[in-house]
Design a protein around this nucleic acid. Structure first.
Lengths: 242, 242
DNA sequence: GCCGATTTGTCCGTATGTATC
DNA sequence: CGATACATACGGACAAATCGG
């Protein structure tokens, strides 16, 4: 699957870390040793290591070696925004029953209001999708998504009810590269109140973001309005001077 | 100040982006042109560009060029967690008056409850600090921090009232590399209610995290409890295969 | 404290592949 | 098809930090 050499090295070392072969605090073999072992130059090893460093797995220490700082997380909250976990996966992990209700599915054109909020160009043709996410029959998330039709053609309400990402990746062979997210607390809108049981929560946590594909095209704008007690947002930040 | 060549190139290009010289959607000069302009190899240019890509500023497009995908954020919320902005900087950016009140300053030892929550080893000697952050006289954040004494010696209440990070960086010459953060919504504790004006907000947004220094040592655990209307949490995730 | 070996950090120059126009 | 631009990889050189003898 991985065609680039640095990528297969990256995958191999990551597996050694997540499988527990190297634990928190351990030092990896030296770059020179890896270079020999993988039959490549030190530069190529360093590239793989730099990705792992950027992902928070490793901490290189000048003159000493490269240390593992990855630890298995202790998950408590239901929804972990920030990872790559989808709604369905999250629900499954918690042994609940997932359901998705499509509230709206339209084709629209971006006007300047939409453009300003989402980053799409004025006049761009978009799919506009509203969905309600239910867990064990309780509405917990209200999603609004917009997809650039030229990049994600062929979307249907049926796909929206199942998994849009599976369609994009498996059918359209699209790969996602950069995404931006913002989390804010907002007062619920009438629509929020109509859809979700927010009786004791006078706020919703709003996660909005843009997603770019590997062509560098902004193709998705997404906004998820969460019941505040169920969401958890995680981040790993690295001073990336490597 | 920047000693490494790639770093000064990084800073220069970033400045060109944030200053608006290049806008969202524009293409940067080619790597070869930059290499000539900065009198270095394409590799060095690529390194600077790769950092900017990892930070969400750029989107390289194979065969075409490198596109700017940075947009000036529409800052509505006061506090942007996720960036590297300190409380004082945020307040200054909003032209407000900052104040920090130290509520507690103790030396403690990590028991197993603390250890489990923070990641410090049992028995580790820690500074325990509680602070209240005031903006224009209004309490908006309640901070609880713990620092590993062996890595951050010499902390005092006076330093805590000013800037701990300035002390760590300037006096102890410590550099921060990796940090992990979690954001959750929680019911306010009696302490929260006593310290902050939360009358209309039955929730606080809790940002907790671990910080590693360049020695790879977990030296800080931090928890900030925010009034929900004032915080904004941003993240840029990149599938970093660059 | 010095020296040499090891290890990571920075940078160069070059070659080749692949996508776009 | 050729020119341009980014992507991958090689190999080498020297600097800087660490560690053991």
């Amino acid at each position: 699957m991985p065609k680039a050499k640095y990528e297969s090295i990256y995958l191999q070392i990551r597996k050694d870390i997540t499988s527990g072969k190297y634990e928190f605090g351990d030092y990896l073999p030296s770059e020179n040793e890896y270079a020999e072992r993988f039959a490549c130059t030190r530069n190529t090893v360093r590239r793989a290591l730099s990705i792992l460093t950027g992902e928070g797995y490793l901490q290189p220490r000048h003159g000493r070696g490269v240390q593992v700082i990855y630890q298995k997380e202790q998950e408590k909250n239901l929804f972990t925004v920030g990872g790559i976990e989808s709604f369905a996966e999250t629900v499954r992990r918690n042994h609940r029953k997932a359901e998705t209700k499509v509230l709206a599915f339209r084709e629209i054109e971006a006007d300047d209001v939409i453009s300003h909020r989402t980053g799409f160009e004025v006049g761009a043709r978009l799919y506009y999708i509203e969905r309600l996410r239910l867990m064990d029959g309780i509405a917990v998330i209200r999603d609004t998504n917009m997809y650039l039709m030229s990049e994600a053609p062929g979307l249907t309400p049926e796909i929206a009810a199942r998994s849009i990402y599976r369609y994009l990746e498996d059918e359209l062979h699209m790969t996602i590269t950069t995404s931006r997210r913002r989390v804010t607390a907002e007062k619920p809108t009438p629509e929020d109140l109509a859809c979700m049981d927010l009786s004791e929560y006078p706020f919703v946590l709003v996660v909005s973001g843009q997603v770019f594909n590997s062509n560098g095209v902004l193709f998705e704008y997404t906004q998820s309005r969460h019941r505040p007690d169920l969401v958890c947002f995680t981040e790993t930040a690295v001073r990336q001077k490597l």
